[in-house]
Simulated scan of single mutants.
Amino acid sequence: MTDTAVGRAHTAPGGSDRPLTEAYDTALLDLDGVVYAGPHAIRHAVASLEAARGVGMRLAYVTNNASRPPRVVAEHLTELGVPAEAADVINSAQAAARLVAEKVPAGSKVLVVGGAGLEEALTERGLVPVRSMTDGPLAVVQGYDPSVGWQHLAEASYAVASGLPWVASNTDLTVPTARGIAPGNGTLVAAVRTATGVDPEVAGKPLPPMHRETVIRTGAQRPLVVGDRLDTDIEGAYNGGVDSLLVFTGVTTPAQVLTAPVRHRPTYLAADLRGLLVAQPEVTALGEGRYRCGGYEAWVDGGRLLLSGGGEDPYDGLRALCGAAWAAADADGAVPDGSKALAELGL
């Protein structure tokens, strides 16, 4: 079994002889859907993070949500039982503000479409946040905030149409809340794009500006990205050339992992953040498209994923299924049907 599975492109989930808390020095944790959903902690998150910190792993919280300043997020985490300082939180507002600061002179006014998180990040960079075109901004920055409405989007549209540089903190189409999945910043960006015909420069995950911001602020040497989204967290890890752990406490389903293209394939899979605290089982290629993990064996026949064996952890079955599904997709481009196999696992 390998010590850790290192590399960007994965043909099967990886294995680690050691708990991930020992194999990596820093966990770069997404927040929404990983640590909390709205005001409530995700099940097992608080105890798992406490245990990870206790054995020396640094915890950094990396989020595309630009609505709240880092200190407010840190206070929320602390209230949930996850002690954190403002410096432990890196958000897409900070990455967006750095991009804007590279485009305009120091002290410039910037039109903000979003919340206090964007305003604070701009101020940190020596820029002046404003809310109207009449204030004479030299750029536009847009991020998620529940308060954003038609008037804000119209103001952004006027500014973008006038030719001002436009930076979006992220383009996530959805955001998990305590009540379910809600529209994210990507839907608000789409409104301005539709009105102007212009595309913004995007700062957040999965794009390089966010990874750059994270590395600058954390100094991580052996980081592990931990997230619940394939198109932001896992693709961001792929783009940054670092390993990733996908947890199933947010928006991604096991069925979606089976059909993931190369850039969306995580290194490791776990039900929740307890996966940080344990070694990861190896997925073994047996030949002829068959893969084994734990007591499970998976393969493709007639365009369908098949599963045999069993074990205590259904996620071992999912890991084996990923190996078979990803290998089949890479070989002929066809995505096998895994619905029956997932039902057998209760996933």
Rank of each mutant, 00 (worst) to 15 (best):
L99I: 07
L153F: 12
A331C: 10
T196D: 02
G143I: 00
V46D: 02
L307I: 12
L277W: 07
E297I: 11
P281T: 01
E155L: 08
A237E: 06
P223F: 03
V251W: 04
V192Y: 02
K109F: 04
S48T: 09
P13D: 09
P206H: 10
A27C: 14
A159F: 02
E282S: 14
T134H: 11
D330K: 13
A195L: 14
E213N: 05
R8P: 07
A5Q: 13
L245D: 06
A329Y: 02
G33I: 10
S162Q: 12
P208A: 12
G294H: 11
P146K: 02
L306I: 00
R193N: 13
L345Y: 01
P266Y: 09
V262Q: 12
E50W: 10
A116T: 09
Q151F: 12
V189C: 06
R304P: 05
R8T: 14
P39Y: 06
C293M: 07
V141T: 13
V82N: 05
G115R: 01
S108K: 05
G302H: 11
P261Y: 07
L29Y: 07
R290Q: 11
G333D: 11
G303K: 12
A121G: 06
T259N: 08
A154V: 15
M57T: 13
R131L: 03
V278K: 12
P281L: 08
T123D: 11
Q142H: 14
A255P: 01
D135Y: 12
V112C: 05
D145A: 15
D231G: 05
G333R: 08
P129F: 00
A343T: 15
R131H: 13
L80E: 06
V300E: 14
L246Y: 04
G236F: 04
A74N: 01
Q256R: 15
W150G: 13
W299F: 09
D88C: 13
L188I: 07
A93C: 07
V148G: 06
A66E: 05
T177N: 04
S92W: 02
F248H: 07
A279G: 15
L173Y: 10
L99E: 10
R43Y: 12
E312L: 14
S67T: 03
E124P: 01
L207P: 04
H264I: 07
T171W: 06
L318G: 04
S67A: 14
G309H: 08
Y158N: 05
K340C: 00
T194Q: 14
V215L: 15
Q151W: 13
A159G: 01
D301M: 11
G136R: 02
V104R: 03
G117E: 02
L245E: 10
K205M: 11
G114A: 00
A23L: 11
D233R: 07
T252K: 04
E50Q: 15
P281K: 00
D135L: 10
P83E: 13
